[in-house]
Amino acid sequence: MVKKSSVPGPPTPSRRRLLRIAGGATAATLLGGAGLLASATGAHAAQDGFGLRIVDRGEDDPRMKYYRFATDAIDWDPAVNVLLPDDYAGGRRYPVLYLLHGGGIGQDFISFDRAGIRQLTAGRPIIVVMPDGGPAGWYSDPVHSNAGPRDWETFHIAQLLPWIDANFRTHAEFDGRAVAGFSMGGFGALKYAARYHGHFASVSSHSGPASLRRDAGLVTHWANVSSAAAELAGGSVYGMPLWDEARVSADNPVEQVERYRGKRVFLVAGTSPSPVDWADWVTETQVLAGQREFRDRLNEAGIAHEQYEEPGGHVFRADVFSRDLDGVIARLRAA
């Protein structure tokens, strides 16, 4: 059993009561600067900057660092875990993997710590950044929110990414960054890699949807419904009842295939979700179909990629992630 991180969780648990089904293995997951340079040596505590003000921190663990921020982008204080390599104290710079959690109740910046990320990365020369993304934030700035700011895309890309580069010894360049995620986070990884083409050299989607419009836009509808219930107090990511069609197309991996050219692309989905678990079956069936559609588009465009189909349903496969991590490290600039 993996020991749970001792750092505190999000301070507003009431936001989670709105969504009854667990996000890691249910349909909810799919359908669910200045003054900072010295701290980047790792010899000093991390500093505020880039719109982020540190309101809580845990820096005693030699590998796992925890920070909670006040930010105008989110109206509660989101957190991040930053997992350093075993030999980070040696003074080298490292590539970075941004690892995005799934959606639903109980899914947050600690999710991958619960899943054994410390053991999975032991001895590997890479920094892993695991931020909050909301129970149904969909790694997006929503079209409309009734719950105050929930601009997760702004928080991750405009604020957290440069804050990490300023406070840790990273390779702050295209070939120094990867993005990956599970379920909703797998979609977020694909979205960020396309929308921010020059930011990430490798992208991995573990049971994450890759097509927003198939089956009458089932994933888009679920993003709207789940975000309205669990994140935005009746608002929506893409607009209801009418979608912001330009936003959907900009976020849709199968419509942005050329944005993956020159990147390492890794996809995995399950082929045998439980026939007696409706949520598992619907979720992974949709994920698999969408990833196959995306794979076909990549093949048509002549874009290299890895696509795997594994037994089981909508679960995080630690063994597959370990294999993926080897590929991430091989693609990125070495420490």
Rank of each mutant, 00 (worst) to 15 (best):
A89K: 06
S140C: 11
V282R: 13
R195L: 15
D277I: 15
R68N: 01
S236R: 05
F174S: 01
R317M: 10
P209G: 10
A216R: 02
H221E: 15
W243L: 12
A40M: 03
P11L: 12
D215E: 03
A70Q: 08
A46L: 09
L232C: 01
M1K: 06
Q307V: 15
D61C: 13
V248P: 11
V219W: 12
Q159N: 08
L120T: 15
S236K: 02
G51K: 09
D72R: 10
G58E: 15
V257L: 01
D175G: 06
S14G: 13
G270R: 06
L242S: 12
G90Q: 10
Q291W: 09
Q159G: 04
A228K: 05
D132W: 05
F155K: 07
A301N: 08
E255S: 11
A250D: 11
L52R: 10
A45I: 05
G313K: 08
V328F: 04
S205M: 00
V203S: 06
E284R: 09
N81L: 06
A228S: 15
V268K: 09
Y94R: 06
W152E: 08
L97Y: 02
D75M: 10
Y88V: 14
P273M: 06
G49P: 00
N252M: 05
A228V: 07
R63D: 09
G148A: 04
L190Q: 03
L30G: 13
L30K: 01
A250G: 07
I117Y: 01
Y192F: 14
L267A: 02
N299S: 15
G290A: 07
K65H: 13
R213H: 09
L190S: 08
P78M: 07
A45L: 12
S272P: 00
V55H: 04
R323L: 00
A27Q: 05
M1S: 03
G239S: 00
G239V: 05
N224P: 02
E255D: 13
W281E: 07
A229D: 11
L31W: 10
L36M: 14
G104T: 12
G234I: 13
